[in-house]
Design a protein around this nucleic acid. Structure first.
Lengths: 328, 328
DNA sequence: TTGTACGCGTTATCAA
DNA sequence: TTGATAACGCGTACAA
């Protein structure tokens, strides 16, 4: 005894399949028709098959969110925001992890052609020609949370890293910290490149030289710890890290070296994720608007699904600084 | 110009649709046939439609993982393990958040009947009759990561909280901490109930009385901070927390009260998530085998999809203790 | 080995 | 308003 189909319901109710479909979709029907169909549906426990429906209407009512690392708390913030918008619009959200390699991202975008989902929201770590091309050629609408060349002609929502960097440096300088170091993630990533540039600019705006710059192999806690020794001990009184995970990693190493935060070294993270609040001491962090970026990106995606001819939009979300106890 | 279908490919290659399908699915065909089909496929950029395929074969090759809170780092551990097993078997993983309410869980399980996915892996926070019933009646295979009555007749993978508690208490007692407090999450949840019971038993095994017991409103960092004051200041020299997030919340409050960890108070978490390593001081935590539970649960789900008649299995994963600096 | 034709469960078009 | 029927794109008996 397998699942009842619409035909079964029609038979049980003594009406046509078309009528059942109409009642189920709220199209005009007589009082009595609705009544009969409803009863048959309840009796048989009929549930419409999403697969068949998808085939017919050409939509899955499913959207994909692709992030590089589910372990990065910034993505949970973004994911929550996206989920909220998307489910309010009647879509389910599929969360996928791509890993750090651009080839995986490309494979994912190409795979969208199979019609698993009605749209893709991707936050790529690395971007190359192949990825831009695959996005442009993608069968379903794509929105990028991150930076991608304007000529790609794709909807984009991104953070303003340079401005965020400036907020961080302003704050540190106001607290009399002038020997500022920078721990970046991989510079060959989109956020890595943006933050390196932003850091350089922000220091220049204050007529300062970088006290030190190091680069972690990943945007992870472990990579942060591993890279911390690359910053010359005692050579800086403040360090800005490219994200919160790196910052927490650095704080562990500073503690191990007997340095106090913020007395000896002030630490600033970026993303203002839940981890910033949870770390000890709580981490001053640049809020790059991950929740808002998620929300706006989701809205953009829904709008494009509605109308694929609209001109691509490029939204920039402004940062703010969440000051906590890791800075004086 | 819409997507090419299998019919288009057949026309372009001058063969039948059946032959195209066969070649694509690796069924026997002549060298030349394969060649011709392949060329046509490449030329047209044909990609099989997952929707149509799903309808025909009655499978989506999609599995759903439902967790209560994506912000809880224990789930990223589990998710990673599940993803690994599942993708190796050719399935995609859909991650869904249910929230803390059992009604949402029930709605989710019921919704599986629509055929969105071929199986469900759920880690329910709260379990009631409705949930058990919906799981038993579910159209697709369900595996529960957590505790559910044996009479539910469902595959289950769960942790051994009492044993884990005992490991924690053993460790603390060995370090001469005998005034042990316990911060639980909501006791009306499955893990909350298990841990409360485990704590009581473990203390009894050592002939100890609880120094204090409190209950947070959620298994979150914020709830942990809020509940910490419910433990009598100075009344305990060790505290076990029902998960890592609560433990980190407590450590923040202890610090605010001027107490040192572990000198004044030893702190033990549960889950041994990434957060335990990231917290400061690093958190001693009971490893309840979340990665292994995820892996085993995923394997169970795949096995049941393969053969729905097999007898339900109930797997218990044994805990271990990861000792870090939050205990002496 | 290859081709024809049907069915998967649904929605949408057209007559009645 | 309702009912019969043609798609949607694919896999697969069955026949050739």
């Amino acid at each position: 005894m397998s699942r009842p189909t619409i035909a079964g319901v029609a038979r049980a109710a003594g009406v046509s399949v078309a009528s059942v479909s109409r009642v189920l979709n709220g199209l005009p029907a007589t009082e009595e028709m609705v009544e009969r169909v409803q009863r048959a549906v309840d009796e048989l426990g009929y549930v419409p098959d999403a697969r068949a429906r998808s085939l017919k209407v050409g939509r899955t009512f499913q959207l994909t969110l692709a992030v590089a690392d589910v372990g990065n708390p910034v993505y949970v913030t973004m994911m929550r925001a996206v989920e909220e918008v998307v489910s309010a619009a009647g879509y389910r959200l599929v969360v996928t992890t791509t890993g750090p390699d651009v080839v995986d991202e490309v494979a994912l975008v190409r795979g969208m052609a199979r019609g698993y989902a009605d749209g893709l929201l991707i936050s790529p770590l690395r971007v190359d020609e192949d990825l831009v091309k695959s996005i442009r050629e993608c069968e379903v609408p794509v929105v990028v949370a991150g930076n991608v060349p304007a000529k790609a002609g794709v909807d984009t929502v991104r953070a303003n890293s340079p401005k965020g960097m400036l907020l961080a440096v302003d704050h540190l300088v106001a607290k009399d910290r002038r020997r500022i170091a920078f721990l970046n993630g991989p510079a060959d990533t989109v956020p890595g490149a943006a933050r390196a540039k932003g850091f350089a600019e922000a220091l220049k705006a204050h007529n300062l030289e970088p006290a030190a710059v190091a680069e972690a192999t990943d945007f992870t806690f472990t990579a942060g710890r591993a890279a911390a020794p690359d910053l010359p001990a005692g050579g800086f009184d403040a360090v800005i890290c490219a994200n919160d995970l790196l910052a927490v990693g650095v704080m562990h190493e500073l503690a191990a070296a007997g340095l106090e935060v913020p007395a000896d070294v002030a630490v600033v993270g970026m993303d203002d994720s839940e981890l910033a609040e949870q770390s000890f001491p709580p981490l001053t962090s640049v809020n790059l608007g991950s929740a808002e970026r998620g929300r706006r990106a989701a809205e953009l995606l829904l709008a494009r699904i509605e109308d694929n001819e609209r001109a691509p939009r490029r939204i920039v979300v402004q940062p703010s600084l969440s000051i906590r106890r890791s800075t004086p």
